[in-house]
Design a protein around this nucleic acid. Structure first.
Length: 301
DNA sequence: CATGCGTGGAG
DNA sequence: TCTCCAAGCAT
């Protein structure tokens, strides 16, 4: 029961908030989903796209998406396959399907407006703990602990004195986040965005830039001499030759064609027939691909 | 709770 | 070249 969460005394919390928020006011990126006109739908779309995908790649797709489907009901009225097609090469295309499903649920159950309640957001497909908190905080200014990979890393370093947070989010991390969350709602929402941005721009996974960090003087990790991460290097996720790669190739063919695609066109993307069939079956099972009576395939209608 | 799920850029 | 990683979620 070692307590590594009190490196920052509660009395330091106020100055901590002020430092990070002041830094944010000065250095925050001007991202489209942060502009007032984005609205809750814009925030929600951005959060789906940003799940495991860098900002630079999200930007162009986000703009096209919002121009085409400015409200949830606009997307809900489309075939899910159109969402998958518009998703392009962002990766993890199941997110497109879930975003479409979330839009339908919003149109049906919430009168077309993105719900503001955390529990209602959490009930939507594709929205988990993080995204629910992010939308409630960023779009509606509510007070929530927004624990993404950036915030977890900032807290791990500044408060716990370790280089990287654990693989999976722990109860201790949630507790720490709650402790550090400002009491005032407006300040809390600002803090959530600011601490995340700090992790994205300064306190990055590699090449952290402590010289530009507003809380370097209070950072437990830096003060401890920045000890290296203990334990084995995290997973080496090979991609070449996996089902994921095959699925990606198959879906790319289907995205490129408005007309149904014959089996022969799909056979060309991968030499090994067993794996190819398994990948295609998986896509069908996930609802990303629709097999037709005549043996052709298309994006879901 | 460990896995599977895409893709591309940086170091 | 190859490894790591980028605002997670669902099972």
């Amino acid at each position: 029961m070692t307590d590594t969460t009190t490196a920052l005394a509660p009395t330091d919390a106020v100055s901590l908030h002020a430092s990070v928020i002041a830094w944010f006011d000065e250095h925050a990126r001007d991202l489209p989903w942060r502009r007032p006109e984005a609205g809750a739908w814009g925030v929600m779309v951005s959060e789906f796209m940003l799940q495991q995908t860098p900002v630079s790649r999200v930007l162009p797709v986000y703009e096209q998406w919002l121009a085409r489907w400015p409200r949830p009901a606009d997307l809900a009225a489309e075939a899910p396959g159109e969402a998958v097609r518009a998703w392009g090469r962002l990766g993890y295309p199941r997110r497109a399907l879930r975003l479409h499903g979330a839009a339908q649920a919003i149109a049906e159950r919430h009168g077309g407006d993105v719900p503001s309640e955390h529990a209602q957001l959490l009930a939507l497909p594709g929205i988990g703990e993080y995204t629910a908190a992010a939308v409630a905080s960023f779009a509606y200014g509510q007070r929530h602990t927004v624990l993404d990979t950036n915030v977890r890393r900032v807290f791990a370093r500044a408060a716990s004195g370790i280089q990287y947070p654990p693989t999976a989010t722990t109860a201790a991390e949630r507790r720490l986040a709650r402790t550090l969350l400002p009491d005032d709602q407006e300040t809390a929402a600002r803090w959530a965005a600011a601490s995340m941005e700090l992790g994205a721009l300064v306190c990055t996974a590699r090449n952290e830039d402590c010289a530009r960090c507003p809380i370097a003087g209070q950072c437990a990790w830096r003060l401890a001499g920045k000890p290296a991460h203990e334990g084995a290097a995290r997973r080496g996720q090979t991609y070449a030759g996996t089902d994921r790669q095959v699925r990606g190739k198959l879906l790319a063919v289907l995205r490129a064609s408005t007309a149904p695609v014959p089996q022969s066109a799909l056979d060309g993307v991968w030499h090994e027939p067993v794996q190819r069939a398994r990948a295609l079956d998986g896509l069908v099972a996930d609802g990303l691909v629709e097999p037709l009576e005549d043996g052709t395939y298309q994006l879901p209608s």
